[in-house]
Amino acid sequence: MSLRRIVVASAALTLAAGLAACSSSEGGDGTTLRIAASSTPHVEILEQIENSGALGDYDLDIVEITGEVDANELLEAGDVDANYFQHEPYLIDWQKQKGVDNLVAVADVHLEPIGLYSDKIDSLDRIEDGDTIAVPRDTTNFARALYLLESAGLLEMDVPFEDADLSVVTESNIKSNPKNLNIVGIERAQIARQLGDAQITAAVINSNYALEAGLTPAEDAIFVEEAEDNPFANLLVVRDENENDAVVVALAEALESPETAAWIEENYSGSVVPVHSTN
């Protein structure tokens, strides 16, 4: 059993080189799954599964995605066999925008509660009139951030979260903004770097990017999303033609196993939450 990992960054030359390296692997032989994944915690979870022996004779060829490389484009084009980085609302919106419907989720694995972070204030009550809040700019995470700010008591939305179509929510759905907050959309991979910007009071950051930036969501966020009944579980996604492949089924079962859930709980201390029980 072997594990290969390459890193694919956002630069075009690095991407091309990475996929060239990937294409020379033993992927496609029915025993090796080429999978694109975000580094933290996705690659770490995949490596733990591979190293534990849970996949038996199957191997993973991991393409570690950094920057803003579109892992769904890689999957839809056939450059990888699977990806592991996104939640269901994002997948639905991506396919709607691209006019495709052949990507399917085969496992729901973990939740990364998003949080509000700041290096200037340490509590919600210190947010002042006219302050700027940075949020992810992609459609579904933008909507998710607005509803987080509503949960924090900073905004009021015109549609309850449970009834909202996150693919169409915009700033126009803000019913009340009592502190006249300035909401600024930034690429989600870049938001953590903006905390030091003098113009930004606080930022809503996805937990994987917070972890990569050295933040501990369970400790450093001044407000965190609720995990219960949360629809943003991260998924293992494949093309529909491959969803019943033996290696895909094996990985899906390993990702949803009690052993993986226990490992997530032990290693991320609430910053990453397993969807399935450890029992």
Results as ranks from 00 to 15, higher is better:
3 L>T: 12
4 R>F: 10
7 V>F: 06
9 A>Y: 12
10 S>R: 11
14 T>R: 14
20 A>F: 04
22 C>K: 13
25 S>Q: 04
28 G>D: 11
28 G>Y: 08
33 L>T: 10
37 A>W: 00
37 A>F: 02
37 A>Q: 03
40 T>H: 00
41 P>A: 01
41 P>E: 05
44 E>A: 13
50 E>W: 04
50 E>M: 13
54 A>L: 14
54 A>H: 02
57 D>E: 14
59 D>T: 12
65 I>L: 11
70 D>I: 04
74 L>C: 09
75 L>V: 06
78 G>M: 07
78 G>H: 09
83 N>W: 11
85 F>W: 10
86 Q>K: 10
93 D>R: 05
104 V>K: 10
105 A>E: 09
106 V>H: 02
106 V>M: 07
112 E>K: 07
121 I>P: 05
127 I>A: 05
130 G>P: 07
133 I>H: 04
141 N>L: 12
143 A>C: 08
143 A>F: 05
145 A>G: 12
148 L>S: 09
153 G>D: 05
159 V>N: 04
161 F>P: 01
168 V>T: 15
168 V>Q: 14
184 V>I: 12
189 A>S: 15
190 Q>L: 13
192 A>S: 15
193 R>E: 15
197 D>Q: 13
201 T>D: 02
204 V>E: 08
204 V>W: 04
211 L>H: 04
212 E>K: 13
213 A>V: 10
224 V>P: 00
224 V>C: 00
224 V>K: 10
226 E>F: 02
230 N>H: 02
232 F>R: 07
234 N>T: 14
234 N>A: 06
241 E>F: 03
242 N>Q: 13
246 A>I: 01
250 A>F: 06
250 A>N: 08
253 E>A: 14
258 P>S: 12
267 N>F: 01
269 S>D: 15
273 V>T: 07
276 H>S: 10
278 T>H: 03
